[in-house]
Simulated assay, not measured.
Amino acid sequence: MAKIAVEQPFEDVKKALEAKGHEVTMFNTDEDASGYDLGVVRAINEGYNDEFDFPVVSMKGMSIDNVVESVENRLNQFGV
């Protein structure tokens, strides 16, 4: 089971990932989020890729199903 951080206010993404068996925590972008296997954010700002100490998936332009699929693909890449 992966520890995933999901940016507020995307509770629907949190619920979808929890349904897949992941441990999901909500966070605000201005918080210092760390210690997660993966993060899900609204969009990745150019130049701010070092904002987190874990890989992130951007939800920009994706459905919830696409986000869940992308998260699972990334986790598989990293062997989580």
Rank of each mutant, 00 (worst) to 15 (best):
K60M: 11
N73M: 14
Y36W: 13
L17W: 02
G21N: 00
G61C: 08
A33N: 08
E46N: 06
K3W: 06
A2H: 06
D32W: 09
F78G: 11
A2V: 01
S70K: 07
S70T: 14
I44Y: 01
N76A: 15
M62F: 08
E72Y: 01
Q77T: 09
K20T: 10
M59A: 11
E11N: 09
E7V: 12
V71T: 09
Q8T: 13
D37E: 14
V6E: 10
K3I: 07
D30F: 13
N49C: 04
Q77P: 02
Y36C: 11
H22V: 05
M62D: 03
E46I: 04
E69I: 02
E31C: 12
I44K: 10
N73S: 13
D37G: 09
F78A: 13
K14H: 03
V56D: 05
Y36K: 12
V24I: 07
N49T: 08
H22E: 04
A16W: 02
E7Q: 14
E69V: 03
S63E: 04
P55R: 00
A5N: 09
V57I: 15
G79F: 08
Q8H: 15
V41R: 05
I64Y: 04
A33T: 12
D53Q: 13
V80K: 08
D37H: 12
P55M: 08
F54E: 01
P55G: 07
Q77A: 15
A43K: 14
V71H: 02
N76H: 06
Y48R: 12
M59K: 06
E18N: 04
G39P: 10
N76T: 07
V24S: 05
I64K: 07
Y48F: 11
A5T: 04
E31H: 10
D30N: 14
K60P: 01
S34K: 14
Y48E: 10
H22Y: 14
F27V: 13
S34T: 14
H22W: 02
M1N: 11
G61T: 02
V67A: 07
N49Y: 00
A33R: 02
V13W: 00
K60Y: 11
V56C: 15
M1D: 12
N45G: 07
K14C: 09
L17N: 01
I4Y: 08
E7W: 07
N76V: 12
S58H: 00
A43R: 12
S63W: 00
V57P: 01
V56G: 05
D12V: 11
S63P: 09
E69A: 15
D32T: 14
M1C: 10
K20R: 13
K20Y: 07
K20F: 11
P9R: 01
F54N: 09
K3Y: 06
F54V: 09
I44N: 03
E18I: 04
K20Q: 15
T29W: 15
A16T: 05
K14D: 01
E18A: 13
A19P: 01
H22S: 06
G47N: 01
V40E: 02
L38H: 06
E51L: 15
F27K: 01
R74H: 05
E11C: 07
G35H: 07
M1P: 13
N45T: 10
K3P: 03
V24W: 00
V80P: 03
A2I: 02
